[in-house]
Amino acid sequence: MPGRDADFADFSDDLSTLLDVLGIERTVIAGFSRGAYLATEFYKNHPDQVAAIILEDGGSVAFATTFFKLPPDQLATFFESVRIPDEIKSRYFDVYDSEFEVYSNFYDKKTGGSQFHNFGFIRQVKDKWIGYGGLMEYMHMQDGSHYAKLLFQPQSVSRYAASIVLQQPLAIYETLHVPMLILDAVGTPDLFQNSAENRELASRFPHLISYRAFDCADHNIHFGCPEEFLQAIRHFLHSLVLRSEEPS
């Protein structure tokens, strides 16, 4: 976790600086879930560095929209359900004696291989090691009461946690000027039921926004249906090439 309370704008500024250092003038910015909101923040703050945007189940609709549409009893049921199952908690969120123990917990035996990327999730804390330890607290989503405070009193939580709730994608994309691909997971149960809002946004910019709904996943499309996901990405990137070849 960062040593200070960095918000989404701080992360977007960091990415902007990285692109400058690498000599990349414009890029296709993409993100999944919370990462999609970070992509939207990057476009908000550094639009001239964005060539196109890919949003996978997030970043296109205000985060709280799904929850504010729920009847009070269903919202209360949701808050009561917010907890990390003991098995998941012990596997991914506990504190461990060795780096290898964390790596083993993250290792997917079905996939095989080195899975070297798992080390990117591992952190040392004094003489111990953690994977996702502290993540839910950092996002202020560790239980129902904290989740409710995040949604209804975002000004009272950390800047980072509040960033996802305070962001207003529709206002940000009122001045959209680059191609966008929205990948919307609509499988059962749909974790974020925003297909109507996504379709409405796409209808505002039919010449810029491509919308794809996937009923093979309820949130994580690239994991639930990887082939369909890659096909959509390839098609969108190919369309960007064709656009660049059109006479101005």
Rank of each mutant, 00 (worst) to 15 (best):
F78M: 11
V95S: 05
I122M: 04
E99F: 04
I88F: 04
P72W: 09
V102H: 05
W129H: 13
F116H: 11
D97C: 06
G134W: 03
D73N: 15
P85I: 06
G112S: 10
D86T: 13
R91H: 07
F93K: 08
K110H: 00
V95G: 03
L75K: 11
Q115E: 10
F67T: 09
K69G: 01
R91G: 00
G134Q: 02
D127N: 14
K109L: 01
D108A: 08
A76N: 12
F106C: 02
L135A: 07
E99Y: 05
G120Y: 01
F93S: 07
I130P: 06
D94L: 01
T111M: 12
E80V: 10
F78G: 01
G120W: 07
D127H: 11
W129P: 04
K109C: 00
R83T: 10
F67P: 07
D108V: 06
F68Q: 13
I130M: 04
V82Y: 01
I122W: 09
E80Y: 01
R91E: 11
K89F: 07
E99N: 11
D94M: 11
K109S: 02
V125M: 05
K89W: 14
I84T: 15
P71L: 08
P85T: 04
Y107T: 07
R91C: 01
F121G: 05
D127A: 02
F63K: 03
F63Q: 11
E87H: 12
I122K: 08
K109N: 06
S114Y: 04
G134C: 04
D127M: 07
S114P: 04
E80F: 00
V82Q: 03
L70A: 05
E99W: 05
S81D: 14
A64C: 04
F119I: 12
Q74D: 12
D108W: 06
P71R: 08
F119M: 10
F121N: 11
T65F: 06
H117C: 11
K126I: 03
Y107P: 00
Y107G: 02
T77D: 13
D94G: 15
D97K: 12
D73P: 00
F119R: 14
S98D: 08
V82C: 14
K128I: 05
Y92H: 02
V125L: 09
P85V: 11
V95T: 13
Q74P: 02
V95M: 02
S81E: 12
T65D: 13
S114G: 03
F100I: 15
